[in-house]
Simulated assay, not measured.
Amino acid sequence: MRRLVLAVCFVFLLAGCGTFLGNSPPPSDERAVAAVEEANSSVAAVETYRFDMDMHVVASDGEQTRTVRVDGEGAVNTSAKRMQMTTRTQGQTVDSYVDGYRAYQGCQDPWGGYAVENVSRAEPWATATPLHRQVLLFDRSNVYLRGNETLAGNRTVLVTASPSAEIIESVMDRRQAADMDLNRGSLENATARLWLDPETNRPVQSELTIKISQRGATATATITLQYSEYGEPTAISIPPDVSDDPYELGCPGAG
């Protein structure tokens, strides 16, 4: 079950996702297509931003149920090719970093240290970050305009998406895709929503819900990501010990 929970976390934090099951989804709403295109253009010009994250995962395997709550925040500087993220769960705080084309995932106690893996060079570097992967997902999917919604007292435009498992895999790296094994039916149901600022066309918030199953166990998770401080000065410092003898095969105890 631990592996299942971690798989859900990887999808949410590093990719974002949604899917449509059953018959093929209806064609995109042209107004939604235009909104996503404008968001894509707006995000492409963004060099810095910050994000806040809140996630709730419930995994069940027979009579056993496990609930995991994760909250955190991060900062991105695409011009420097750097990202920093702090997450808190079950009394532990973990820092993770992306420095160029190397990603360092902090490992929980009692091991500590960092696991390292390469960031794909097949896509622009920015698509390794939460905001850009979200927009990329909507850009590749059928999308639908749901009208205006008030979010934290501000008017926003809501767009939803229905990407297939193949589209989800296309915005994940090979390691994540292998862990999720989406083509074998582990993804049962998911939704994706994106709120846009009508003045700037930039994303304000995304909320995602996903249900996956593996070997008889199921996990359902909901995550909310809020984006802010676009274009504000953002210097990201990476501690020197991050790259000191990192784990090459993932964090101990994560399998």
Rank of each mutant, 00 (worst) to 15 (best):
R69L: 02
P163H: 08
D241F: 11
T200Y: 00
R121F: 05
E63L: 15
A75Q: 10
V46G: 04
A221I: 02
D54T: 05
A115H: 15
T67W: 00
Q64E: 08
T160C: 08
N189T: 09
T209D: 08
F12W: 00
A254R: 15
D71G: 10
R174F: 15
V58Q: 10
Y227Q: 07
S60W: 00
T234P: 11
R2A: 15
R69E: 11
R133P: 03
R102F: 06
T89L: 10
C251M: 03
V58Y: 05
T127C: 01
R121Q: 08
G18Y: 01
C107E: 07
R174M: 13
S96F: 11
I167P: 00
A152N: 12
L196S: 06
N189A: 10
I236G: 15
F51Q: 06
T78Q: 00
I167E: 00
V11H: 04
T191S: 12
P239G: 08
S170C: 07
I236D: 11
G231A: 06
R88N: 13
P110K: 07
F12C: 08
V68M: 07
Q134M: 08
T200I: 00
T129S: 09
E232Y: 03
L194P: 12
S186F: 14
C9T: 10
S206Y: 09
G216L: 05
L158N: 06
D95L: 14
P26H: 01
T48A: 01
V204A: 04
A235N: 04
T156Y: 04
A217D: 11
A254G: 14
Y227R: 03
D54I: 02
G22A: 01
S164E: 08
R31H: 12
L194K: 08
